[in-house]
Every structure is written in structure tokens, then in C-alpha cells.
């Protein structure tokens, strides 16, 4: 089946089996390997991307369902050589260790901050509760999101 979609503002099309999972289309057909896979049961969120602005688990969607949609992956965060404040925040606050969960965390937080520019710590913890991290204990991920929220409110993005 022919699927046409846009990823990070670029148009793509590919002929795929209907059963192709969206995450495999992104990683293996489009070769955007920043989006990861960490489970089979829709629990880890390593595969989180935005579909029409909403963060979703791309391992639990078929590529054909993304027909005509606007997708955004971690590779789309940096704009014109400028890192997104979340990316800066994750580096500044040591919000990542092995980096495997990081793209998913970034995408979830990106959508979250758009809706909740001034979140509390608890808001952030609930917002990222569909994304597992085994390395950081979440403390610094929360700080990284706060860091980004502050930067954005000061006109950082």
C-alpha cells in the first residue's frame, strides 16, 4: 500500500505492507534511527513520536494509519542548527545517561510544554509516565523539562 506522509517537514512516500509498524517505517524505511524500540507491549515509550502534534507510541500504530499525517521525530527538534531548549535542558541538567529513552522523553516533553508552559514538578512526572527510563531515576529529566520551560518562557523558542 502506498503511504504518503511528512516527517519533520519533509514529504516521504513508500510502498508498505499494511502490517508495517510505524516505528519500523521510520527506523528502517526512512532510516531515522533516533526513534527507538524498548518493548512489545506499549509500555516503554522509547518509540514516542508526534503525529499531528500529539505524542504517541509509534510501535502501536501501523504506518498506513499515518497516511497524510504530519510526523515529527527527535531528528526534527533542532532547527537551523539551533537546538531546542529541551535538548539544551537535557544536556544542562544531565537528563540522560545511556540516551536510549531520551528521544521519546524529548518528544513527550515537547508536546507537553506546548500545552502546559508552566508545569509543576508533579505535572511533569505525570506527563512522562508513559516513558520509562532505567538510568536516570527521572529527577534530572524533570529538571531538564523545567529548564526548557523557563528558557521557552524567556523567549528561547
Amino acid at each position: 500500500m502506498l503511504v504518503k506522509l511528512s516527517v519533520n517537514g519533509e514529504k516521504h512516500e513508500a510502498n508498505v505492507e499494511p502490517r508495517l509498524l510505524l516505528v519500523h517505517m521510520i527506523r528502517e524505511v526512512l532510516r531515522l534511527t533516533g526513534t527507538h524500540i524498548g518493548c512489545d507491549t506499549t509500555h516503554c515509550g522509547a518509540c514516542t513520536i508526534l503525529v499531528d502534534g500529539q505524542p504517541v507510541k509509534s510501535c502501536t500504530m501501523f504506518a498506513v494509519q499515518a497516511q497524510g499525517k504530519q510526523l515529527m521525530t527527535v531528528e526534527g527538534l533542532e532547527q537551523n542548527g539551533k537546538l531546542h531548549p529541551l535538548q539544551e535542558g537535557f544536556m544542562a541538567e544531565h537528563g540522560l545517561q545511556c540516551g536510549y529513552c531520551t528521544p521519546g522523553m524529548l518528544m513527550t516533553s515537547y508536546a507537553f510544554l506546548k500545552k502546559h508552559p508552566k508545569p509543576s514538578e508533579d505535572d511533569i512526572r505525570w506527563a512522562i509516565s508513559g516513558n520509562l527510563c532505567r538510568c536516570t531515576g527521572y529527577v534530572n529529566i524533570v529538571k531538564a523539562v523545567q529548564h526548557a520551560a523557563a528558557a521557552i518562557s524567556q523567549g528561547g523558542a
Binding site: 515509550g45 505524542p55 504517541v56 500504530m61 513527550t108 508513559g130
Partner: peptide, 9 residues
């Protein structure tokens, strides 16, 4: 219900 990402779909 589930988690925030699952709830988006």
C-alpha cells in the same frame, strides 16, 4: 486509564 501517550490514541 493507561498512560498519557496511550490516552492520545
Amino acid at each position: 486509564i493507561a498512560d498519557p501517550l496511550v490516552r492520545n490514541l
